[in-house]
Amino acid sequence: MRGLSRTTLFSVAAMLGLALLAIPSSISSSGLASAQPAGEALLAKKVARLSAKASANKGIISLDSSAFEDVMSKPRNYSVVVLFTAISPEFNCVPCLNFDPEYKLVASGWSKLADKSQLYFSVLDFKAGQEIFQKMGMNSAPSVLYFPATASQSTQDRYDFGRLGFQAEPFANWLNARAGTSIKVQRPIDYMDVCIKIIGTIACLFTVYQLFTKAGKILGSKYIWSAVSMFTIFIMISGHMWNQIRNPPYTAPGRDGRPGFIAQGFQNQFGLESQIVAVLYALICGSAIVLISVVPKIENPTQQRLVVWAAMCFFGFFFSVLIKFFQVKNPGYPFTLLFK
């Protein structure tokens, strides 16, 4: 189960996998052995070239297939971090886009270091280096591999997005532990954002001050508090926190006759699903409240009868829907009300 969820973690994984399968696996490790031990001069030249490339682009070297082979070729006295990604919009890889600025942040943190520890940051886009993706057996993006200086291409370290997340800080820590660097992530201060926040706070305080008496009335209002409490209870008892923690998709395409908004499995749910349940609870609870509070206020017997019947039918109907819903989730559940 866990293994499965890991594979579906990245939206692009399946697509890339298919694309890779489609390409015939004819391209062997071609340019790998080309780098001959041509001595120190060659290495120094390469390092100079890489350093120039890196400093030209805020610390990141963009690669394509041949450049990748070149960077990886021996002799090599530096370590390389490669981000395998798919930025192009046609792949629709949301994690790639999310991670891209974070990666740049770490790279720029590295470029500010005095001791660069013979490390280079590079990016290989799927469009530019399909062959490499295939050769390395990459079938999900983004992936980050770390190639230490001493070892050959086969020993590599993969950054675990599933566990460590897409933030720059854990990634920097991960890298520091491997490369022996001390990269610190410094997020640029978004002055616009700060300004907006300050102005917003001042405006809020000002309005609160202006409306002080009214605000007191609002804060003291029983109805507002009851509405807020009831709303909180409804979303909590319909599994809102589960959604917060597990981040399920909002809905998914239905399969073999199952409606798309119901997740498979008893301990699993979609965003829409829990919202539907919250609405069902609210409807049933609402009809109970109508029966308790509204009905005794109706003077006209006929009207009253109508309301009672309507509310009770509502009650029964939605309760049946709820039980049916539950039965879909838990097929062994033996009780039903209206719907068999």
Partner: peptide, 19 residues
């Protein structure tokens, strides 16, 4: 965390009479 099914499983009709 608790999925909605667990709430219903553990409390059935009480869960909507509760609010």
């Amino acid at each position: 965390p608790t999925a909605w099914t667990s709430f219903f499983f553990d409390l059935q009709m009480l869960i909507f009479l509760f609010p």
